[in-house]
Structure formats: structure tokens, C-alpha cells
Amino acid sequence: MLDRLGWCWRLLATGLCFASFGLGGLLLWALVFPAVWLLIREPARRARVSRRIIHLTFRCFVGLMRGLGVLTYEVHGLERLNRPGLLILANHPSLIDVVFLISFTPLADCVVKAALLHNPFTRGPVLAAGFIFNNAGPPMLSDCIASVQSGSHLIIFPEGTRSTPGAPLALQRGAANVAVRGRIPITPVVITCDPSTLTKGEPWWRVPPKRPHFCLVVREDLPTDKLIEGCTSDALAARRLTDYLSDYFTSETRRDC
């Protein structure tokens, strides 16, 4: 009986969290970010302020989810994010992975899906923060490299979408191309969730039988130059690095948190 009551509460609390997230996005778009645009004219500074606001909002949202008993979490190696100009690559088991990462990264930049522009709950934040859209074509690569070189923390999920539980990780080459062409070391973040929740195609109301526990581990940097040593072209280097990252994240997600 207690387990059933706990599940019912988490279902209700999960719905409340999703409603809060949507309402928060609308309020930011309608009230907060217009004020930022009026008060700050310089685009780069405006983007930094907007990213800081999103960071604080997401930190509050993570606290809300934990406070309501929707989930628990732990983070290891967070001090490794206290450096400027990082290329942060993470696996993507759940819908809220990006919420966790941005909540712990004050000036995060992100590569996001262009579809977020058509979502009224996310359009305001992604525009105000100046995030990079994945449909930008060839300029996207230059924008990503410039973001890291400017001191931002660029977050990319190399899978491009959420992973399917039990299926092999399928990484795209975009993240590897950024690392290769910019000669940028990689800061990997390994995310695990037990039991799995909010996976690809899973509706929010399909709450797992027990409270999910998220574990985020910021690992030691991966030296891009060493990993692609001997490659005769950037295309070959990106292919090798993508294969390495696929094996790396597959192995790391099987380790205990």
C-alpha cells in the first residue's frame, strides 16, 4: 500500500514539475527576457546574463524535483567544470539531462534542436541565450568552436537524441568534428539513471515503480590531439574520435556511480 501511495504521489508531483517548467518558460519569455533585451544592448553580454538566468532557473527546478520526491541525484567531479572554455560531451539517457547539466554550469552554451523554436515553452530561453541550433549547416561548426574559444562551456550530446535503454549508443560525428577542427580537449560527463525514466518516446506519466536516481560524473579530460594522432585528414580523425567516444561512453555507463 505504501509503495502504491508513493507511486501516486510521484505521478502527481511529476505532473506538477512539468507544468511548472512550462509555466516558467512562458514567464521568462513574456516578462524576464524582454526586460533583459531592453536593459542590455550589447549582444554578448545579453546572452551571458540570459544564460545565467536559465542556469539559476534550472537549478531551482532540479531542487523542486528532488524536494517533491520525484527523483534523487548525485554529482561527482563538479570542480572540473570550474574552468573556462570547455567542450562538454555527455550521453543522453533522459529528457532532463540538459536541465541537470545547465543547472551545474553557470554560463553554458548548447547545441539544441531547431524544433525548440516552435515550442512556446522553450522558444524564449533558447533565443535569449543565443544557443546554437543544429540546423545551422556549415556555420554551426564555426559557431561551436568560437563558443568554446570565447570561454563558454559548450554542451553537446553526441547521440543527437535520447538513447534507447539496452540498445548500443549511436553517436553522430558533429561533436567529434568540433573537437577535431578546433583541436579542443573533451570534458566528458557520464550520466546514468536507475531506473530509467523519460527515455525516448516515453510519456511523462509513465512513472517508474521506484524513484529514479540520477548520477552525473564529470570525468578527466580526453586529449583530442592524442586520440587522433596519425590521422591524415579531419574527416578520418572525426570518424576515429566518434568510434572512440562510442566505446568510451558505452563502457563508462556500465560502471558503478
Results as ranks from 00 to 15, higher is better:
2 L>W: 14
3 D>Q: 13
3 D>K: 12
4 R>D: 11
4 R>C: 08
4 R>V: 15
4 R>W: 13
15 G>Q: 08
15 G>T: 10
15 G>V: 14
16 L>D: 01
17 C>L: 15
18 F>Y: 15
20 S>L: 15
21 F>I: 09
23 L>H: 09
24 G>K: 10
26 L>V: 14
29 W>D: 09
29 W>G: 06
30 A>N: 08
36 V>C: 13
42 E>R: 12
42 E>C: 10
47 A>H: 13
50 S>A: 15
52 R>N: 05
57 T>G: 06
57 T>C: 04
58 F>N: 06
58 F>R: 02
62 V>L: 09
63 G>N: 13
63 G>C: 10
63 G>S: 13
66 R>T: 15
68 L>G: 04
68 L>K: 06
70 V>K: 00
71 L>R: 00
72 T>M: 04
77 G>K: 00
78 L>K: 04
81 L>Q: 04
82 N>F: 09
82 N>V: 10
85 G>L: 12
87 L>P: 03
87 L>V: 15
88 I>T: 12
89 L>P: 05
91 N>R: 05
94 S>N: 06
94 S>L: 07
94 S>R: 02
95 L>T: 13
95 L>R: 06
96 I>S: 07
97 D>A: 08
98 V>W: 01
99 V>M: 09
100 F>Y: 09
101 L>P: 03
106 P>K: 02
106 P>D: 03
110 C>L: 15
110 C>N: 04
111 V>S: 01
113 K>M: 05
113 K>A: 12
115 A>C: 10
115 A>Q: 13
116 L>K: 00
117 L>R: 03
118 H>T: 11
119 N>D: 10
124 G>S: 08
126 V>C: 02
127 L>Y: 01
130 G>I: 15
131 F>T: 04
131 F>I: 07
131 F>P: 08
133 F>S: 08
135 N>W: 04
137 G>M: 09
139 P>Y: 03
147 S>Q: 13
150 S>W: 09
151 G>Y: 03
151 G>P: 10
153 H>P: 11
154 L>S: 03
154 L>Q: 01
157 F>G: 03
158 P>W: 08
168 P>Q: 07
169 L>E: 04
170 A>V: 15
170 A>N: 08
175 A>W: 00
176 A>N: 05
177 N>H: 14
179 A>W: 06
182 G>W: 02
185 P>E: 04
187 T>V: 10
187 T>L: 11
188 P>A: 07
188 P>V: 11
190 V>T: 07
193 C>T: 14
195 P>Y: 05
196 S>I: 12
198 L>H: 07
200 K>L: 14
204 W>C: 06
208 P>G: 07
209 P>I: 14
213 H>T: 07
216 L>I: 11
217 V>N: 00
218 V>T: 04
219 R>H: 07
221 D>G: 03
222 L>T: 07
223 P>M: 01
227 L>W: 02
227 L>V: 14
230 G>S: 08
234 D>S: 12
234 D>Q: 09
236 L>N: 05
237 A>Y: 02
238 A>T: 14
241 L>R: 02
241 L>K: 08
243 D>K: 11
244 Y>K: 05
246 S>P: 07
246 S>A: 14
246 S>I: 09
246 S>K: 15
247 D>N: 06
248 Y>H: 01
248 Y>S: 02
249 F>N: 02
249 F>P: 09
254 R>D: 02
